[in-house]
Nucleic acid binder design. Sequence first.
DNA 1: AAGAAGTCCTGGGCGC
DNA 2: TGCGCCCAGGACTTCT
Length: 282
Amino acid sequence: MPELPEVETVKRSLASKLIGLTIKKAIVRMPKLLKLNSLEEFTKNIQDKDILALERRGKYLLFELSSNFLLIIHLGMTGQLVYQKEKALAEKHTHVIFKLDNQGELHYTDIRRFGRIILTTMENKNQISGLKDLGPEPLGSDFTKEYLKNALGKKKSCLKALLLNQSLVAGLGNIYVDEALHQANLHPQKLGNNLSPEEVNKLYCAIKKVLKQGIENKGTSIKDYVDGEGKAGSNQENLWVYGRKGNSCKKCGLPIEKIKVAGRSSFFCPKCQALDQNHGEK
DNA sequence: AAGAAGTCCTGGGCGC
DNA sequence: TGCGCCCAGGACTTCT
């Protein structure tokens, strides 16, 4: 599941290879992936565009192209964007092939087809639903302790739902939310407006810590995730709770539990992340 | 009108 | 062995 660290790793691994190249054409095998463009419009407009820059916003990859075009790619759950230095065979679920002017190719592969590809212009960037509604970058300067405190206090939802909400903070997904909550000793079902200043502070630091670690380890490769060179990351070896049901907590030794919160599986330590922990304290 | 639930989609794992 | 069922989850749509 590509979340912020995975998308950032893809961006970094592709940037050096792609910037300065030209997209000669795109072969779209799954037009349904193009949510906002017709097949004709997409293939016509993408043709002969230079790749000027590659950015990330939340879980979105943004390719800045010549003539003011912007290619937006969201990897969904199982999306892979892999550079091939020469013509390569398309896999079963390779839905788009971008042919480059150096004979290389960029393959978009997505088994579950939850991803999206949008071609728009720089001017319309802030009108794309999903992208325009994103909250601050958790590793950027807009994401402050004060912001998090206000954002959590406003809404009456549990922490799990709040942190998964991309308009509150951009880029977190199921894995890093569970990891951050464990680092901060907070139960996923605790209400956002029920946090002490200390708890907000711990959560703020935990979010940054788990994301930075994820980037350092080049992403979490549990099932499908690979970077732009097709290489897996190693952060799955450093998880404290996600996917560790029944294994002992690395802090206290008790078995990690798994429950459903906000429609998503949530892994947590019943002792370190007790719901009533710190009640009345401080 | 906010928050919850349903939806899309395929492959892997499990029970019988 | 093989069939059917359930689960995984990002973000949008639909419901309450």
